[in-house]
Amino acid sequence: MELLYFKTFAQVVKSGNYTRAAYALDYAQSSVTTHIQKLEEIYGGIRLLERHGKSMELTPAGELLYSYVEKMLSLYEESHQRLSTQEVKTVRVGSIETLAIYELPNILAEFKKKYPDVMVQIIPDSEEIIIEKIYNKDLDFGLIIDKPFKSERINSLSLKKQAMQVVVPPDHAFTKEDFITIDDFKNETIILTEEGCTYRAYLLKQLERNHIDFTLSMELSSIETIKKAIQNKWGVGFLPAFSIKGHEEVVGMPFQDENFQFYSQLLYRKSSSHGSVYQYLISLFQKA
């Protein structure tokens, strides 16, 4: 109970009077008055504060106590921070490859500034396996690109709507167009990511639904390898727009399809979203 009194005492000193302290603490003013009276009783009835006009000022005894209260409250906050950090020694993040390469590094750099002693494990995998591992508590977080994910046990934080691009060599005929539609894939040779990729599955389904003839020439697990293959004119690719930025060897043409409503999303179990470490990482994704 004394800690509560100390907090109230410190707030009165910072606010200057009982009214502003009560507002800051969301207490009734009578509660603030009672806390100060109880604190004075604990110390033998010594006056800690006295009124000067509309303000409350420290007595000599109050000044001495306040110097200790500041230290005690600081240690109290530090203990909470240290214990919450100590509880989490490792954060496990499952991610599809594109997000692991292009989106995670900046966020993790900020995270490590605040929590340098927390190990971060990045586990690249398909969306299906990432979700399964989150359910089984083998992962703390998952990063996917898909239609909005819904589950009673897993939270889904939509980060941003993702645009797709048809990736071609600089001299490809597609570069003369403003955008590419599903019909433009007719008779094209295509290079895709491996099975299990959600945007690959979407494209193949749309090609089949629209009866588009095409040739699937390669399935590659690495985005960088796909771009190299496109550069060598072995086919055209279908990749998230952010993965093409800064690559002059290939050109990304906007893919237009009103039905493509995919978002990058952060997944995590509803039961494990508490604690300062997890909350801070979630806040970094929200700001990105």
Rank of each mutant, 00 (worst) to 15 (best):
S243A: 15
V168T: 06
A241F: 11
F242R: 10
I244T: 14
I212E: 11
T215G: 06
N210H: 14
D184W: 00
F242W: 11
G235I: 02
D178E: 14
S158M: 15
M218A: 12
Q231K: 10
V168S: 07
I182R: 05
K245P: 00
S156M: 10
S158H: 04
T175G: 05
L159Q: 06
D183T: 11
K176M: 15
I191L: 08
F174Y: 12
P240D: 09
S243C: 05
V236D: 03
F238G: 09
N210I: 02
S151L: 13
Q231T: 11
L203T: 02
D184R: 00
I190N: 03
I190D: 03
F185H: 03
L204C: 01
P170C: 01
K160G: 07
K227V: 04
I182M: 08
Q162F: 10
L192Q: 13
D171G: 06
T175H: 11
M164L: 14
I182N: 06
K228W: 13
L220R: 06
T198F: 10
E188H: 04
I182G: 04
E195F: 08
A241G: 06
L239P: 08
I212W: 02
K233R: 15
E188D: 02
T181Y: 03
V168L: 04
V166A: 07
I154H: 02
S217G: 07
P169E: 13
I182E: 09
I190V: 13
V167N: 00
T225L: 11
L220H: 07
L192R: 01
E224S: 12
C197Q: 03
L203F: 01
A241K: 08
W234T: 02
E224Q: 11
T198D: 05
S217D: 08
I190K: 05
Q231F: 13
E224N: 13
I180A: 00
A241Y: 08
V166H: 08
K186H: 13
I226V: 13
Y202K: 12
I230Q: 01
E188F: 02
L203G: 02
L159D: 06
K228T: 14
G235T: 09
E224T: 10
L157G: 07
Q165F: 06
V236E: 10
E219V: 00
L220W: 11
H211S: 13
